[in-house]
């Protein structure tokens, strides 16, 4: 098979894997069958088992990755739509964003110091708690690698989605705004999806927190990178 055909084949695998995993989740609503877990794992296994070279894989699928920029711009709509909610609780939301941002950075930094991970990983870890399009923009400030960052961000989302409910129960967090903000700030898109399952209000708050934390991360990353190094 020549390279161009192989590239198209990879694009087809990616699209098929993604839409199949979404269809699966619509039928079987189990946490571990969420598309965020199934789709990347299935596609990764396929690519590895077929021994496809990564440059061939990227030849067409990089158009998909390029859609992250317009997707970032699209976040303007939820901000505009929920302007009323933002005006109602400005303090709570800003505290959530600041807390999430600082705790995310501090926890990553502290743990990489304790475990002495190699620099590629520890630098890519810094931005892990914000949504992928923002994280990929911000990671270069810390010297992180976009691909590793994307994977660590995804893992963070999955972890947050899995641990949130037992944690909320243990810690007696009841108000929906606290649940929403915490999920959005710590587990970005996956957290927002989870929050949406808990309730509509939680979902909206989680998405807003996720967007604002992402923007704040992109804007402040150069400053924090200077502090860390």
């Amino acid at each position: 098979m020549n390279h161009s055909a192989l590239g198209l084949f990879c694009l087809a695998i990616t699209l098929a894997g993604y839409f199949a995993s979404k269809a699966l989740y619509r039928r079987q609503r189990r946490v571990w069958l969420a598309p965020i877990i199934v789709a990347p794992v299935a596609i990764l296994i396929t690519v590895v088992s077929l021994k496809i070279d990564i440059s061939d894989y990227f030849s067409y699928t990089h158009y998909l990755a390029a859609m992250l920029a317009p997707a970032t711009i699209a976040f303007a709509l939820p901000i505009y739509r929920e302007r009323k909610l933002i005006k109602q609780y400005p303090l709570t939301l800003s505290l959530g964003v600041i807390c999430g941002l600082l705790l995310g950075l501090a926890s990553s930094w502290l743990l990489t110091k304790l475990t002495n991970l190699p620099p590629e990983l520890s630098h890519s870890l810094m931005v892990r708690s914000v949504s992928t399009p923002f994280a990929i923009e911000a990671t270069s400030s810390f010297g992180g690698i976009p691909e590793l960052t994307a994977m660590l961000v995804l893992l963070t989302g999955v972890i947050g989605m899995l641990i949130c409910e037992p944690l909320f129960k243990v810690a007696h967090i009841q108000s929906s705004i606290a649940k929403g903000v915490a999920l959005g700030a710590s587990a970005h898109g996956a957290g927002a999806a989870k929050a949406n399952e808990i309730g509509r209000q939680e979902g909206v708050i989680a998405s807003l927190t996720m967007i604002f934390t992402g923007i704040a991360m992109v804007l402040t990353a150069p400053v924090f990178a200077m502090l860390v190094n």
């Binding site: 990616t14 699209l15 894997g17 993604y18 598309p35 965020i36 789709a39 990347p40 596609i43 990764l44 690519v47 590895v48 990564i54 894989y57 990227f58 699928t61 990089h62 998909l64 990755a65 859609m67 992250l68 317009p70 997707a71 699209a74 976040f75 303007a76 709509l77 939820p78 949504s131 992928t132 399009p133 990929i136 976009p146 691909e147 590793l148 994307a150 994977m151 961000v153 995804l154 898109g189």
Partner: peptide, 21 residues
């Protein structure tokens, strides 16, 4: 478009994730 782009966000970051091999 905004709803669609945000809804299918996962699709757009699968390629970078696969690149971790």
């Amino acid at each position: 478009a905004a709803t669609w782009l945000i809804g299918e966000l996962l699709l757009f970051f699968i390629p970078p994730v696969v690149a971790v091999i």
